[in-house]
Amino acid sequence: MGEVAATMKIMPEGVDTDLEDLKSKLEAALPEGASIYGSEVEPVAFGLKALKVVVLVGDLEGGTESVEEAFAAVSGVESVQVTDLGRPV
């Protein structure tokens, strides 16, 4: 089994959401077998910032689905979108 690197754009519920705290909650919510490979903050508009997270998951069928569902259930998350899929470098 190989790994897939999925870049996910996490939109917080508001401008005042603490993105470091949100990242900690996302790490705690990761399903077994998935891990965070990297992250960065991306300005969106009007002071709103998104959290871009690269998650390593197994390349099994439905690979990112469990991570997307886990992240969407975290308090403070407005939406989760996979923006890129590929092999880790």
Rank of each mutant, 00 (worst) to 15 (best):
P31K: 08
E78L: 13
P88I: 08
A70V: 07
G2W: 04
T7V: 14
S75H: 05
D84W: 08
L22V: 02
I10F: 04
G14V: 01
V57S: 07
A5K: 13
E27Y: 00
V77H: 05
S39Y: 15
V67F: 07
E65S: 14
V41K: 15
E42Q: 15
V55M: 11
V4Q: 09
D18M: 06
V54R: 13
S35H: 08
L30H: 06
T64K: 02
K49L: 00
Q81W: 00
E42S: 12
A73K: 14
L60C: 07
V82M: 01
A50R: 08
V80L: 05
E42K: 14
S66Q: 13
A50Y: 03
G62L: 07
M11L: 14
P31F: 03
G76N: 03
K23R: 14
G58E: 13
E40D: 06
A72N: 09
L51Y: 01
V54W: 01
E61Y: 10
S79L: 06
G14H: 02
V80T: 11
L19E: 10
V54Y: 02
Q81Y: 01
L30N: 05
V67Y: 04
V89F: 08
P12A: 06
T17I: 12
T7Y: 03
V53Y: 07
V15F: 00
D18E: 09
K52S: 04
I36H: 09
L30G: 03
L26Q: 01
A5H: 08
A28D: 14
E32H: 03
T64F: 05
D16T: 13
G86N: 09
E65P: 00
E78T: 01
V53I: 14
E78Q: 13
L22T: 03
G47T: 07
E69D: 14
A73I: 01
Y37N: 15
E69S: 15
L51S: 08
F71R: 08
V57A: 02
E61L: 12
V53C: 05
S24P: 00
M8W: 02
P88H: 07
A45T: 12
V74I: 09
L22Q: 08
A6S: 11
M8F: 03
F46N: 14
S24C: 01
L60V: 12
G33E: 06
A72K: 15
K25L: 11
A29T: 08
G14T: 00
L51M: 06
V15A: 12
A5N: 11
A6T: 02
V57E: 09
K52E: 11
E20D: 15
F46C: 01
L85M: 13
L56N: 14
E42G: 02
E42M: 11
G2N: 13
V89K: 11
S39T: 05
L30A: 04
V74M: 05
E32I: 00
A50W: 02
S35N: 10
